[in-house]
Every structure is written in C-alpha cells, then in structure tokens.
Write a protein that binds this DNA or RNA. Structure first.
Lengths: 210, 210, 210, 210
DNA sequence: GTTTAATCGAGACGGTACGTCGAGTCTTATG
DNA sequence: CATAAGACTCGACGTACCGTCTCGATTAAAC
C-alpha cells in the first residue's frame, strides 16, 4: 500500500538521518510533514488533500501536525516559504533594463513549475482565508514588491526610467500579467509571452506622440 | 428564526408572481436559489456556505438544488453569469483612447462591488475545479477578451494605436492589474489607480527614445 | 429494462381487457397495483419495496396509488385479503376431529406458500402500525378465530370435546405454533409437524391420570 | 431543548462514573447508546427511531454508533441481549409440573413489560432482516428452547411426563401462545390466560378416552 | 543509568456537511 | 375529470473530514 510505503520511507530516512547525528527529531518531523503535504498537493490537488492523508503520508500522528499549523493552507504556506529564495530579486547586471526582463523570465519559469502550482493554491485559498491572505502578502507579495520598487526607483534616479513613473504601477503592469496567466488558463507563460509583455509595457501602447 | 422568515419571503413572492401569471414555477425556484446563494456568499463567505443553508434560505429542498447544479461553485457561477451584462464592452465614444479608460473604470467599479466578490470566489474556486475554470473562461474571460481585442485592432487599423501592438498583450497589461488588485489586497481598486495603470501603459515606462 | 417491460405488459393486458369490454378501468388499475405490489414483495422483499417501484411495475402514477391506500402495508393487506378464501374454514367432514387436523394442514400449506410470506410481512409490519394491526385483526385473525370457536363449541355440544374446554385457549394451543414456526425459523412447517402438535395437544402432555 | 438536556445528563453521569474510577469510557458510551436507544423505542416506537435521534439522546456522534452496530435493529438486539437473564430458566422446584407453570408466568410477565416491547420489535424486524433473525434465534430462541427441552426430557425420564412426548412440540404448544398473544392484540397476556393454556395443554383437549 | 517529563503514533470522539434515497404532496399536460 | 409523469419539501441515511482528546509507547532530559 502506498501509505505504509511512504511511512516506512520516512522512517528509514529518519533513522538514517539520526545515525548521521543530524538535525533534531522535531525538525525532521517538520520537514517530513511539509514534504508530504507538497507531494500530495502536487499529485492529487489541494481539494482532495486531507489532514489524515498528510499524516499518513508523513507517517505522523495528526496531533503532531496540528501542534505546528492550524490548517492545510498554513502547511502549504510554510512549505512554500521554505522553498522561496530569500536572496536578491534582480541580478546586478550591467544592463538595467535587461535585468528586469530577466527577472520576469525567472519568475515565469518558477510559475511554470512547482512554485507556480503552490502559488496558485495559496492565492486561491487566501481568497477565503484572511489569515492566509495576510501571511501570503507579508511573506511573499510585499517583500518582492518592495525590492522591485526600490530597484525601479534606482532606475529613475539613474535617469533610465522616466521620472514621472510610479514604481507601484510599474510593478503591477509588468507582473500582474504573469499572475493572470497563471490563473486564467489563457495562453502559456512562455518566455516569449514575457518578452511581449515587457516590450509593450516599456514602449507604451500609443504612438510616440510625446 | 431567520430561515423561516426567508422561506416565507420566498413563498409570498412566489404567490405574488403566480398571481401576476408570471414565470413558471420552475423558473422561480431557479431564481430563488441563485438569489439565496449569492446573498449567503456575500454575507457569510463562500467557505461557510453549505447546500443546506442555501436550501433553507431559498425555502427549497436539497434535491431541487442538486437537480440543477453539481456543487456550490456551479451555483455561484450561474448567478454570476445571470448578472453579467451581455451588452457591448466599449461605449462607441468619439474619443477612442478615453473609451478604453472608461471601460477600465467601469470594470474596476464592478470589481469593487458585488461582482468583484463573486469573481474573487469563482476565480479562486476555479483553481481547484477544472469544470468551473472552463466555464469561467468560456463565459466570462474569453468573450470579453475577444471584444477587447477587436476593439484594439480597430484602433490599430485607424492608426490610433501603434501597428506593432499585440492586442492580447495589451489586454493583459491593462486588465491583469485589476485582477491582481482584486485578489492581492495590495492597495485599492480606485479610479485613480485605474488611471495610473492606464497612463503608464499608454505612455510606456521608458524615456521617449523611440 | 425490467420496469418498462412490466409497464407495457400491464398496458397490453389493459387494452385486451378493455377490448373485451371487461371491468371498469378503475378496477383494472386496482388489480394491477395489487398484483405489482405482491409480485415485488415476493421477489424483492418488503423492505426494498418502494411506492415508486410499485407504480413503475404497475405502469401507474404514484397518486393513483395514494388515492386508494395510505401506505405500502395497506396495499399488501388489500392484496392479501383479496386472496383469502372467504369460504368455510372447516370442511363438514364425517369425522369431527380429523376435520380439525385437516384444517391445520391446510393452513400450514398456505403458510408454506405465498400467503405465508404475506402474513409474515403483514404481521411484522403490524407491530409498528396500529392501523394495520387493526385491519389484520378484523379481516383475518378474528373472523377465523370466530369460525373456529364456533366449530369447537359444536364439538363440545356434541360431546366430542371435553365440556370444560375453552375454545379460545384451544385455538391458541393448536394454531399459535403454526405462527410461531412461520416466524421463528425454528424447524419446518411440515404436515408431520402439524400432526405432532395436533396429537400432543389432543392427548395432553401428562400421563393419563385424569 | 430535550436533546441538550439529555446530552448533559449523559455527560454529567459520565463524569460521575469517571470520578468513581469506573468502567472505561468506551464501555460507558456503549451503555449510553443502548440506554438511549431503548428509551426512544419505548417512548416513540421503533419506526420513528433514527440514528440521529439515538446519537442526540446519547450525546454521541453518529459514527460512534455506526462503529459498533450496523443498524437500528442491531442496537436494540444488543440492548435486549444485555437485559436477558442468562441464568437458569426453570427454578429447581419440588413440584416439576408447577415449575413449568411458574416459568410460563415469568415469561408472560416479562412479555407484559419492557422485554415484551423489545421482543415484539425484534421479532417483527427479524422478518425483514435475516441477520437479525439469526441473531435473535441464536441468542434468544434456541438457548431457551434447549434448556426447556432438557427440562422436559428430565420430566420424561422421571416418569412425570408421558414417554411419547416430543419436547419440541411440547415447547411450541406451551410457549407459542404467549408469542401469539404478544403480537396479535387478541386478549391479554394475563396469568389467568397462562394458566388456561397450561391446563388445557396438560390435560389434553379430548375426553380422557385414552 | 535510571527515572521523569515530553512528545510521539494511533485512533476514537463530537460534530458538520455531504450527496442519495424514499415518502407523501402538488403541478402540469394528456386523453 | 382522472390519469401518468415527475418535480417538489422533508428528513433519514451512511460517509468523509475536521479539530480535539485519550491512550500507551518511545524518546530525551534530568538526576
């Protein structure tokens, strides 16, 4: 049976890790639960995900999960946060503009993969769960918006971007389309698409009458 | 008790309508259910919405609901579709550009109200329910994209918009930010915000080097 | 499909009968319903019997049934009463005593067949349904007890039975065992069993010390 | 409200028992459920008995009931079995014959009370439920028949009963009338009635021609 | 090295909502 | 007008999860 297989898989791993004198057991359980939750979400979807299933997959009692997180969404959120690269958003490239395009491509690539699936789930669930919405905003959305805004402001200071640009609006115009495509099922999140959005936004939609 | 109040409300209305020789009973039930569902979603939220509650609020048996829709999301979808104005998207204004801005404002206003709440719920639920995703795409997203794309293409033909613009990308840049703000809880969906997005997108983000 | 087959069966029969200028249509429906009900009880059991099923089997609307009987049990009761031979209970035989034994055998035979199944169902259902209990008592139990009591009394008058016998108790001693075996699943309701009960009751259980 | 009253009644009792360091909790629930079920059957009848009602009356979740018994009848059966005195059937009296009469009276008395109501329900339900029929036969009918048969056989051995008597037939003649009266609503199950049946059966119905 | 105190797995518990089924009522269209 | 068809309200069914709680067993720390 799948469950017991996974249980023993976790157990064996646990013993192995302990033998290596690794992290404390509590930390191992943490990881095992997050891993199990993500695995189940990616394979079976968030809706058919139950606390029981996570507990079984992780080889763990239900209380052990509830001791750490209040609900399924919080687990996925924790797993997602753990995966997010806390590093810099924009590579300090010699070409300011191209660096933006590259960052957008990186994000699109993430959205195409595992992170995209998690974001989709979290963003959707957040519509019903203010706690989660807050967490998502504070741990994902706002930090990245802040970094982007700062980067864009530096571009304004350096005279590369127009002075009358609002970084917040710029962020929305460039990145909202990625979220839109992630959720809407209207066309792919390809690099070509990213480029197109990027070019259009940069050049503007009107004739160069200014 | 709340329920019986609502039940009788529906019943009285039913008799009144029948007295007017109005719509067939079946159609009345349809409306009563949709109305009850929307009312409950708007007051108590989608998560705490149960088939029982809808049935009670509508003064209707559970089976009558299941006969018509397979789940809660489908009910909300039906209610939403019923509300959507199937008319033209862009008012044939003398000023092509301003007409776009007006349409964006109209949409933002809708998003601020009842429709926004429904869209939020539907879009979120659609992330877990492919059937709903399909319905939402076909009955909401795609038709409006199509109309917008045609309008934009006419702008290109008339030489108002640049010839090298992809209407699809233009749609995303202009409208995705509205969805983004609807969901993210990052700032309000005010007319001022709409204008800002509009202006930035139209003028472009770069210096007028073109 | 089974149902439609049966429906058309009834319909064809109906037309045939009508062509013969037979009983009024209402009476035909009556019979068709009772027949369908008995058929279903005998094949599928009383528990898995629904008004829908009867209506479908009889090719009849549900209201047509409810107009005639208040519930399933009443239908079976009606069907049962219709089958019961309203004639004499005891054949006027030359041998008074043997006539009793014969009557017991006749009853046992009936209990082994279709009537037994119906009695079992009715008697059981009557434990939960006072109306049915009354009907069963008045249309089945009491009439037969009365006839038997009279017959036994004639035996007393004629000096064949002891003068100090209470016919009611005699009825119970002779016939209750048949009902007991019908319900208990303890041994068969064979003629041999009937004879044994009969002999024991007649001779008494004690040594002939009297 | 009735339910909450009963719930708390059970709860308080639970705490009291726990304070006494009494039976394990699981056993308490068992008892509470059986008690609630019997109470409801005796007050409202078996037909209007629902799993929901039992659960509410016992202050218990539905699953807790389903974990233990498959249906209502099984619960009543369990409650009944628990009440049945597993002791000897016939008091070892100095007078063999009178001991039988006494036993019959004891049974009649039981049938007049709570046990009679339960037996009625169980016997009726058993006509539709082979599982229950089997349980009732094996846990009620057959054990008592066996004890009675042995007792009667000892009477034969001791020369008190006639040698040609079949204990099984004797059981039926003596006891079937009690079941008959229990179910038929034909006369009361009084001690006088028991005596009458007893006397008739013992003396035989015919003239002492033997 | 043993004892003590957490922490664990397992799983039963009360509860809520589900989706289905049948009873009995009421409506509509047919003949 | 009575009917067949079938939609309606109501309420019980049995299931699935939720989040809580209890129970031994296992582990880790304190002694």
């Amino acid at each position: 049976m799948k469950t017991s297989t996974n249980v023993s898989r976790r157990r064996e791993e646990s013993e192995r890790t302990a033998a290596k004198g690794g992290r404390p057991r509590s930390e191992q359980l943490h990881q095992a639960i997050l891993q199990a939750a993500v695995h189940l979400v990616l394979t079976s979807g968030f809706r058919s995900l139950s606390m029981d299933a996570i507990a079984a997959e992780a080889g763990v009692g239900r209380m052990t999960i509830y001791r750490r997180w209040p609900n399924k969404a919080a687990i996925i959120m924790a797993a997602f946060v753990m995966r997010v690269d806390p590093g810099t958003l924009f590579k300090p490239a010699d070409n300011f503009i191209e660096s933006i395009r590259l960052q957008m491509r990186t994000m699109a690539k993430a959205f195409r993969g595992r992170d995209g699936a998690l974001i989709r789930v979290l963003l959707a669930e957040a519509q019903f769960d203010p706690e989660l919405a807050k967490a998502l905003r504070e741990q994902w959305t706002l930090p990245r918006r802040k970094m982007a805004a700062e980067y864009f402001r530096s571009g304004i200071r350096d005279g590369i971007l127009r002075a009358d640009i609002d970084p917040e609006a710029m962020i929305d115009i460039l990145y909202a389309p990625l979220y839109y495509r992630l959720q809407m099922g209207v066309g792919a999140l390809s690099d070509a698409y990213v480029d197109e959005v990027f070019e259009h936004a940069m050049k503007g939609l009107l004739h160069g009458t200014k």
